[in-house]
């Protein structure tokens, strides 16, 4: 079958040149990274849904009330919140081209993040010591999967943060490093948003139950 429609009406084949012209490096990075974060959001949504379904199945084991220390969770939450605002300050000093100050704020952010991970691991170790291991009940499996996945994200963020500090030390606040710092900023604040869901639905509602 031959092509019936010929828009040029002259019998000549019509060619279109793809209108692709070079884009500056990294022009689509922030949108692409945002879409990655949104897909990460779906992972957390599934883990939250799993926890929501299994969160009440204690298998005659320990319940949230027996396990969670809300004071500790409050301290942990404030660590993450403080790290969010200090990362904000790092971004502000980055926009003013102050390398040393940016590094200081990034380091402070890293310390808060480290404190968060430290407290979380202490909590996990305490729970496991008490016999509340992931194998104990469906509630605990879901709990460790959800909170552990968040903690793993924060740990990866910390590794990324240190990597970027080395990069900034070596090359300064060049365009590529600014872009990378902006991506990590989005990642870091996104993890804080996920943590809002964790402390509300896992800890606070768990203790209320």
């Amino acid at each position: 079958m031959t092509v019936a429609v010929n828009p040029s009406q002259t019998g000549e084949p019509v060619f279109y040149l793809a209108d692709e012209h070079p884009h500056p490096e990294g022009w689509s990075t922030s949108l692409g990274f945002w879409i990655y974060l949104m897909s990460d959001c779906l992972i957390f949504a599934i883990l939250f849904a799993t926890f929501g379904v299994l969160g009440g199945n204690y298998a005659a084991g320990p319940a949230p009330k027996d396990l969670f220390d809300l004071n500790l969770v409050a301290v942990n939450t404030s660590m993450l919140l403080l790290s969010s605002i200090t990362y904000g300050f790092a971004m502000l000093t980055m926009q003013q081209n102050k390398v040393a100050q940016t590094q200081v704020w990034l380091a402070i952010t890293g310390l808060f993040g480290l404190a968060f991970i430290g407290i979380e691991l202490t909590e996990f170790a305490h729970m496991i010591h008490e016999g509340a291991t992931p194998q104990r009940s469906a509630f605990l499996s879901a709990f460790f999967t959800l909170v552990g996945t968040h903690g793993l994200h924060v740990s990866c963020g910390l590794i990324w943060l240190v990597t970027l500090m080395v990069q900034v030390q070596k090359f300064g606040l060049i365009e590529a490093n600014r872009r990378r710092l902006m991506c990590l900023s989005m990642f870091w604040h996104f993890l804080d948003v996920v943590w809002i869901g964790v402390f509300t639905f896992v800890y606070l509602l768990g203790v209320l139950r």
Binding site: L31, W34, I35, M38, C41, L42, A45, I46, F48, A49, T50, G52, V53
Partner: peptide, 18 residues
């Protein structure tokens, strides 16, 4: 747009599962 799409997916996944 990506955010709105994600919120729709999250709401469906969460409310549907529960």
């Amino acid at each position: 747009m990506a955010l709105i799409f994600t919120i729709v997916m999250v709401v469906i996944a969460l409310s549907g599962s529960l």
